[in-house]
């Protein structure tokens, strides 16, 4: 592992083609003297199949960046493009279609539907996808085949988050966006969830972006972007990513 290696140019590690390109992204809240920059003039490319970690403390802009990436928020200036889709200025319907067809989300607090079983939570998303995998298959991928008919309230936090991962990948998304996926979990449980995410990345080739303030998780990534004050302060490449079970914090 060679963490901390500086690169002047982003390099393709997993694939050659950037699937996501951002240029001069800024996000400003408020106006005049009271304005706060969440993002300042960020340029970014994400390549097909890579495992990218956005690392930074609270307020560094990583969530804002993820939101723009996921079509949940619009930048104040700059452009963001997903393949041939221009995300900046897209309509709500276009952004919904983008999320529906291309993006899988994993939330910090799982956000499962409490009155649907594990299988149904996954099937819910499978039903709106054009080419989904079988829900049971997705759940097997995250190691939950034995919990298919449980309700979320009957599962541990880690299990719930793995259901969330299965739910995110069942539609075979092009990009998996994970927002502090282990933030609400203890280390052991967190590793199980990270294992599921990296398995998806490795086996399905899904481009994966994880935002976290936990620098230990960065060890799993192909590439790490450290954000600070709304800018990408540092970009690191990792030629020898760790397996999830080897990550410690």
């Amino acid at each position: 592992m060679t963490l901390g290696e500086d690169t002047s140019q982003p390099r393709a590690l997993a694939g050659d083609h950037p699937v996501f390109i951002a240029r001069g992204l800024s996000k400003v809240y408020g106006s005049g003297d009271a304005c706060v920059y969440a993002l300042r003039d960020v340029d970014l490319e994400i390549r097909q199949g890579e495992f990218l970690v956005l690392l930074g403390p609270s307020g560094s802009g990583k969530s804002t960046l993820l939101n723009i990436l996921g079509g949940l928020d619009a930048p104040t200036s700059g452009s963001a493009t997903w393949r041939d889709h221009e995300l900046t200025g897209a309509s709500d319907a276009d952004l919904t279609a983008y999320r529906r067809e291309h993006v899988g989300f994993v939330f910090q607090f799982y956000n499962l539907i409490p009155n649907l079983t594990v299988r149904e939570n996954v099937r819910l998303v499978a039903q709106i996808a054009s080419d989904p995998m079988c829900p049971e298959e997705a759940l097997e991928l995250v190691g939950l085949s034995h919990r298919l008919d449980y309700f979320p309230s009957q599962l541990s936090g880690g299990e719930q988050q793995r259901v969330a991962v299965a739910r995110a990948i069942v539609k075979r998304p092009d990009i998996l966006l994970c927002d502090e996926p282990t933030g609400a979990l203890d280390a052991d449980t967190g590793r199980l969830v990270l294992g599921a995410i990296s398995k998806v990345n490795a086996e399905l080739g899904t481009t994966t972006v994880v935002i976290t303030h936990n620098s230990a998780i960065a060890g799993m990534a192909n590439r790490i972007l450290r954000l600070s004050g709304g800018r990408i302060a540092r970009e690191e490449l990792n030629r020898t990513p760790l397996r999830a079970e080897d990550v410690t914090w």
């Binding site: 529906r100 939330f107 819910l124 709106i128």
Partner: peptide
Amino acid sequence: AWELASLRILGFTRRE
């Protein structure tokens, strides 16, 4: 609201 917003993020349309 929270549940429904989550579904919107997952790609569900407003109508759905």
